Computed example of a mutant assay.
Amino acid sequence: MASGNRSQTAQGLTLIAPPLGYAVLVLAAPLLTILAYSFFKDGYLTVIREFTLENYRAVWADPIFHRIMLRSLVVAALVTLATVVLAFPVAYFLSFAVSPQKKAMWLFLITIPFWTSYLIRVFLWKVILGYNGVINSGLKTLGIIEQPLTFILYNVNSMVITLAHAYAPFAILPIFIALEKIDRSLLEAGRDLGESRAMTFWRVTLPLAMPGVVAAALIVFIPTIGDYVTPALIGGGKIPMIANMIQAQMLDLDNRPMGSALAVTAMLIVAVISLVFIALNRRFLRVRQ
């Protein structure tokens, strides 16, 4: 019996070995490389003179880092809030209002933005929000404005709009999956007990859908922190985020150790915030139950 278990274990390890090795190669190796660079005094692996914590001391003592990191967190939080708030009604509509035969078509339509490059979508939003863009041209044609609006581009609002649109499918899909798993008999029981639709949603639907909401929030929040294309194009380079700061250190200044220290520090901050968010959500669900 024991030999049979060992044989099954060996077969399982044989099956997962190729994807596990690939995951380690493409995920763990780059992270370990960045982590190693962050402790180097010299930026070239072939000339390693000594390990140092000076890069991290410089990062934490830099007021520019504090300001840019805080801005990045605020922008990411706003994007996450806007994306999840807009994605939930769409996911709810797909789960509860669309017939099962048409759900696949709707999900297919939601994935259409992925057919084009992310960079092209950002450029399109720049065209839409630009001085002579679609919005300004349309408002001038309708006679609503005489001069083009200048506050709809190169600011935080335009960045939030662009990023919320870009990451909307990532939020809709996990919320939709969570809503699909809800037993409809629970909703019927709530209404049979005299609850209104609003209270049934608040007490039954929303708590059961929270795993999907949490997944959507994390899926949007984490990559938004690392976005540097949108701040550069839609923000006009006037509103840099932490990814732009890392890019400047890595490429423009060729200071790989400092750029790596910035990246590791940002990852740690995002990880802590994500864990706190998950803990608060679990506490919320326990209180509701």
Rank of each mutant, 00 (worst) to 15 (best):
A2L: 08
G4F: 12
N5Y: 03
R6K: 12
R6I: 08
S7P: 03
S7W: 12
A10N: 12
L15V: 11
P18M: 03
L20H: 09
Y22P: 03
L25G: 07
V26Y: 11
K41H: 06
K41S: 10
E50K: 14
V59K: 00
A61N: 03
D62N: 12
F65V: 07
R67G: 02
I68V: 15
I68K: 00
M69G: 08
L73K: 11
L73T: 13
A76F: 00
A77H: 05
T80D: 04
L81M: 10
V85W: 01
F93R: 07
K103M: 05
L107P: 00
F108K: 07
P113W: 10
W115F: 12
T116F: 15
Y118T: 01
Y118D: 02
V122F: 00
F123E: 03
G130F: 01
Y131P: 04
L142M: 14
L142K: 06
L149A: 10
L149H: 11
L153I: 13
Y154H: 14
M159V: 02
I161L: 14
I161C: 08
A164L: 09
Y167K: 05
A168M: 14
I172W: 12
I175S: 06
I177G: 03
L179R: 01
K181Y: 11
R184D: 02
S185R: 12
S185I: 05
S185Q: 13
E188R: 07
A189R: 01
P211T: 05
V213N: 08
A216Y: 02
I219L: 15
V229G: 04
T230C: 04
I239L: 15
P240D: 03
P240M: 08
M241N: 04
M241F: 13
I242L: 03
N244T: 09
P257Q: 01
A266L: 08
L268M: 14
V270D: 07
V270E: 06
A279P: 03
R282V: 01
R283I: 12
R286Y: 02
R288Y: 14
